[in-house]
Design a protein around this nucleic acid. Structure first.
Lengths: 209, 209
DNA sequence: ATAAAACGGTATCAAAAGATACACAGTGTC
DNA sequence: GACACTGTGTATCTTTTGATACCGTTTTAT
């Protein structure tokens, strides 16, 4: 059960009290289990999800390759849904619950309406676009100019910063998918890092030192 | 001299008559010569440029490398300016006139105001963000998964589609900058394409066949 | 318990692309 | 004409990464 209090905490970037009430009134909590598909490629999107708890992975598939666009964390929304709602388009990407995830589903008709009425909502919309652009640009730069070993380190450091522990649960194959390369390459690099004393490898888990 | 008629033609995506008048009233035409710097990195941006004629190159520089973000063509605006105006930020990127370029400069205070009042303006804003994201994603995918020869061909095809002639004026060095690689690599690839009969090389010019 | 699937280590080979170096041809300037 | 600068051709070498193959271990499903 999700309490109003928790929802309100996650939408603290909405400063207008009236809008906070509207969101509670029209938003509906939807829950997904780990692995659930939230949006399929090609699906029409009628709601804007705001993540209350959990994590959503948004990606595209192209010729049996996955292209990671971004993760949607609590208090964030999905740029692709936003834009699909806005233009009444099909979703060009797929969204997957990485863990048990609760979202607050806002009917799409409110998006532009609230943009006109509430500054903080419009801010939220624009910030969502800009943030994802910046992230993508970052990824682009690291793919274009950095070697994979540096990208692996950056990925692990980022994961570490999101949690308490220094042990990151991920298999070599999954890590390869995240970075758009192959398992062998990742195993090779990780082993070298282990030899260099930067980390310790466990089964489906990497311990940073 | 730029006539109102020409401006109105370039902003035909603005459907509200009232807004068209507002734009003419508050917008100011600024002209730049080829090579002029329109925005410097770090500069505060107070106006939103809508290109009426010409072409603007928007890019970042990082450790003596250039990262091309996008070109702004007539009827388009610059996403980075939009977002810098919106948040009253410094520009993270640089804008350069590629040819004689006329822009319609809209004072930044109108951006959010018009978003609230006029649907087509809000559409313009959102479309600008989405379009640049999609472009960047495309570039990202081709950098991540395509070989350079394919990217060279794609670049040339794109340039050809923008003009009448099949002769593209660009040096190997410039082309290398556009694609984020080195001159030698480009020369090597182009020469191979010439041997394959796909194009003919001239000095600082490539003729597609 | 046994089979199947997931996970990971490692060796070999090939391809792509970057780095460097050098030569030479046009173009523009004085 | 002498000179500098830009543009291009090309050879050599190295590094990075991907592809493939094979093996052993651990976990999961039936």
């Amino acid at each position: 059960m999700i309490f109003e209090k928790e929802i309100l905490k996650k939408i603290d970037f909405i400063t207008e009290n009236e809008l906070r009430k509207e969101i509670l009134k029209h938003g509906e909590i939807l829950s997904f289990k780990k692995g659930d598909v939230i949006v399929r490629e090609g699906q029409y999107v009628k709601i804007l999800p705001i993540v209350i708890s959990g994590l959503i992975r948004v990606f595209q598939t192209k010729e049996d390759r996955e292209i990671l666009l971004y993760y949607v964390e609590p208090s964030q929304t999905c740029m692709m849904s936003l834009s699909a709602c806005f233009f009444n388009n099909q979703s060009p990407s797929q969204a997957l619950a990485m863990t048990q995830t609760d979202i607050l589903a806002i009917p799409s008709r409110f998006i532009t309406q609230w943009q006109k009425q509430y500054n903080s909502w419009n801010n939220f919309v624009i910030k969502t676009f800009r943030k994802r652009y910046d992230e993508l640009l970052d990824t682009f730069e690291s793919v274009a100019f950095d070697h994979i070993d540096k990208r692996v380190i950056a990925y692990l450091a980022h994961r570490k910063s999101q949690q308490e522990s220094t042990r990151i649960k991920i298999s070599h194959q999954q890590l390869a998918n995240e970075l758009g390369t192959t398992r062998v390459v990742i195993s090779r690099i990780l082993k070298q890092f282990e030899i260099d004393g930067k980390l310790v490898l466990h089964r489906a888990e990497i311990e940073l030192l």
